[in-house]
Simulated scan of single mutants.
Amino acid sequence: MILKDKIEIIPRKFLKDERGWLFKTLTGTEKGLPNYTGEIYTVCGLPNQIRGGHYHKEATEWFTIIGGEATLKLKDILTLEELTLKLSIEEPITIVVPPLVAHQFENPSDKEFLLLAYSNLLYDPKDTIIFNL
């Protein structure tokens, strides 16, 4: 078997809108993954735009800024406690956002930000509840 027949090439697409783009790196449905894998995706936030603005009833997400800077606004929808974090590639951290915590990324700069994200569940529109902060 030649090398080209041993590998798999999986077409991907960018999901673009006026705020920036989202790119699913791993959808969790690819062959050869463990019995269960969530989704890995990259989000681009354009200057002066907001990404997110929702919470999940079941999914937990992990977010790491990998380029630029963003402001992450969080709100516990049960207690209404709020938290704002400044994220920057200069001081990289990963934020784990559990279910029922609304999250919204704002880009206050004149450059785009890049965010690497993982969700422990595959995308389900019924699990994404709009909640602007």
Rank of each mutant, 00 (worst) to 15 (best):
113 F>M: 10
66 I>T: 05
70 A>E: 03
102 A>E: 11
39 E>D: 06
112 E>H: 13
112 E>K: 15
47 P>S: 08
62 W>L: 12
67 G>I: 01
74 L>M: 06
54 H>E: 04
55 Y>I: 08
104 Q>I: 09
89 I>A: 14
79 T>M: 04
46 L>S: 14
75 K>E: 13
60 T>H: 05
57 K>N: 14
49 Q>A: 11
100 L>Y: 15
89 I>G: 07
59 A>R: 13
105 F>M: 15
78 L>K: 15
71 T>D: 02
89 I>Y: 03
83 L>W: 00
95 I>G: 07
79 T>V: 03
70 A>Q: 01
110 D>F: 03
97 V>H: 10
98 P>I: 06
79 T>F: 08
43 V>L: 13
65 I>G: 02
54 H>V: 06
66 I>W: 00
82 E>F: 00
55 Y>M: 11
69 E>D: 09
87 L>W: 01
41 Y>P: 15
103 H>W: 04
62 W>R: 09
98 P>V: 06
54 H>L: 06
60 T>N: 06
72 L>H: 01
74 L>P: 12
53 G>S: 13
49 Q>W: 01
105 F>E: 10
78 L>R: 14
96 V>H: 00
74 L>K: 05
109 S>H: 02
95 I>N: 06
105 F>S: 12
40 I>L: 10
38 G>T: 13
50 I>R: 14
105 F>I: 14
40 I>P: 06
56 H>M: 08
50 I>F: 03
97 V>F: 05
69 E>I: 01
40 I>W: 09
42 T>R: 02
108 P>K: 10
50 I>D: 08
81 E>L: 03
50 I>Y: 08
71 T>Q: 09
71 T>A: 02
63 F>I: 07
38 G>D: 07
95 I>M: 09
68 G>W: 01
60 T>D: 08
40 I>Q: 09
62 W>Q: 09
47 P>L: 06
